[in-house]
Design a protein around this nucleic acid. Structure first.
Lengths: 161, 161
DNA sequence: GTCAGTGCAAACTTTTTGCAACTAC
DNA sequence: GTAGTTGCAAAAAGTTTGCACTGAC
């Protein structure tokens, strides 16, 4: 499915969601959806705010961004993450399931896929719980920071921070 | 290992960590460690603050709690989570590996264990990444909220929020 | 005695809220 | 026309920071 096709489809899903729940179909909401589906990977509210200006020259208030994202999460078109200080979001329609590696030193987030792992998680029997989605965060050191640390130790530098 | 034994061990680990990194051994730091290891499950800074007063009649500023928790995380004695608005922490020494179920409606967090799942995650080969720890968050509806929603639908109530 | 650590309050950041103006229906 | 939405600014919530004082070494 190409990107335009995806955008059309999510737009339709969103329209159905808004209708079904008695919400209005405002230009702001569609512009936000469109912008989100032009972003690969994660973004926070501030990034989204800037992208709306750059790409579409469309200015919305942060309050509206927060409001709309809640609707999109409920419509299952966006997923919310909380890695660091601010919330991160990502589009969820037609994206491969993936997991996250987070470097505890530099904070870099990398995605990776693993079918076996995915099957293991999805086949887990949950008692009295209706699964909607899940997030696996793996913390550790990325290759860069790992190398940097080795260098430090070689220098006999005992100080930290 | 009983609880006193655990407390003694983590105290020793912390002492070694502080010495190795040139930090001072203050009564505040040990009181915080002790209180944390008397809490089962998750807690946030505010809960910890209250527990210090209740259990030990020891008053520390929030700034010190934040500072000390960073040391404890580095010493691998505490793990940090970010479920909702505020950061959640939990002791990590001598605790069974567990996963988290989070209800998207009421926010309730439940822990569960699953050996198979644990093995699947831990045996995953990560390229260029040195694993330290991981968190699996499963989102969905707890039995209570699931039942509450069904009741709503039966009443033909189409409004949401 | 010295400097890391602490307490306090102010600052900062992210998110939520109240309200007047606007607009989709 | 009217009620849901938006933008703005203020408020709230959580965390960090600057600074004077204290106490571990």
């Amino acid at each position: 499915m190409d990107i335009q096709n995806i955008k059309d489809t999510v737009r339709q899903i969103f329209t159905e969601y808004l209708t079904a729940n008695g919400h209005r179909k405002t230009p702001e909401r569609y512009a936000i959806l469109e912008t989100i589906y032009s972003i690969e990977g994660h973004f926070d509210i501030d990034t989204l705010y800037s992208k709306m200006m750059e790409q579409k020259n469309f200015r919305v208030s942060r309050a509206t961004l927060y409001n709309t994202i809640i609707l999109l999460i409920n419509a299952r078109l966006v997923i919310k993450h909380q890695f660091g200080a601010s919330s991160q979001y990502e589009r969820s329609y037609n994206r491969e399931t993936h997991h996250h590696q987070i470097c505890t030193q530099c904070g870099k987030v990398t995605e990776f896929q693993n079918g076996e792992l995915q099957r293991a998680i999805e086949s887990t029997k949950l008692s009295r719980f209706q699964l909607s989605h899940y997030s696996l965060y793996i913390y550790g050191l990325c290759s860069k920071c790992s190398r940097a640390n080795k260098r430090k130790k070689t220098n006999n530098n005992k100080k930290e921070k």
